[in-house]
Amino acid sequence: MSERGGRPHLAVKREVLVRYLDAWTPVALRSHRGATYVEAGGGSFAGDAFRVFGEFADRLEGHRLDMVMAGASGPAVLGEAPAGLAVRSVADAEDLAVAGPVLLHLDVVEDGAFGESDVWRLVDSLGRGKSREVLLTLPVREPVTEYRERLRAVGLGCAVTVELVAEGGGAQLLVFATGDSKHLAIFKNELWAADEFAGIRYRDPRDAERALVDISLTPQLLPLRRALLAELARRRSCTVAELQQYALLETIYRPADAVGALTSAASAGAVTREPSKGRLTPRTVVGHLEG
């Protein structure tokens, strides 16, 4: 990507979007009501999305996918759309009549035409209903609890908030929310599969230590271990499966990462476990050690 040297945030955001669209599109096309992708993040993102949809031209036949560009001047720059893909622009996406799966992408950092008030207005109008999802980029704010509460209020209770931090320290907040925990897991897989050489590291905005983590399929797990031990101290004991679910819904990590973090904690004698030997499984019960 040409942005890699000078605009690393944009490079990572584009790659994460493309990766998730690759996973979202074939699932969305199964809906008999059609699916809608709303782009409100600028021209470069629209071009990326259009190219992804073009790769599914064979599956688009006999289905309907609407690509709506909010606030855009027109779709002509994107080229000829394959059969089944309808591309249009609207001045205001709030009044869109949509059915079936919807993915809203809105980046207020790259596109100055939209502000944070526009984000929540569109989330409120397009995020309610089954199979609705949003991918947002916002300025870093503290705390992020309010964002998650707003998303939960419209039915998007499965969310991840992750700061994209450049080498110079500049940060942007990436937010993904859905009502489906399986889709959250898919998004996180794509998040960690992004190009690790783009000059961006991740940071969990709810990590008290503010640790920076390199993008990797096998990320550094110390921040997750701290979070899991704190949660275990609150619960006293629980299964590995319960802590995997906690990792999915409350951290930037994946359920599989929780097994790695808990395995190292058990090896170090930081937690109890039952059974006491063997590999950790979802049914393994781990307990808090009194300090």
Rank of each mutant, 00 (worst) to 15 (best):
M1A: 12
R14K: 14
E15K: 02
S31H: 15
H32I: 06
T36S: 05
T36H: 14
Y37N: 02
G42D: 12
R51Q: 09
F53K: 01
E55C: 08
H63S: 15
L65G: 01
M69P: 07
A72T: 09
L78W: 04
L78K: 06
P82G: 03
A91R: 12
D92S: 12
E94P: 00
L96H: 06
V98P: 01
G100R: 04
V102E: 05
L103W: 00
L104H: 07
D107K: 03
D107Q: 05
G115V: 10
E116R: 15
D118V: 01
D118Q: 09
D118F: 06
S125R: 14
S125H: 11
G127Q: 07
G129E: 05
L135I: 00
P143I: 03
T145K: 13
R148D: 05
R152C: 04
V154C: 08
A159M: 04
V162Y: 04
L164W: 01
A166I: 01
V175P: 05
K182Q: 04
H183Y: 03
N189Q: 15
W192G: 09
A193M: 01
E196Y: 00
E196A: 14
G199I: 03
I200C: 00
I200Y: 01
I200V: 10
R206F: 02
A208K: 15
A211I: 04
L212N: 05
T218S: 03
P219N: 06
Q220D: 14
A227F: 06
A230L: 07
C238M: 13
A241V: 04
A258D: 01
T263Y: 00
A268Q: 14
S276T: 11
V286F: 01
G291E: 14
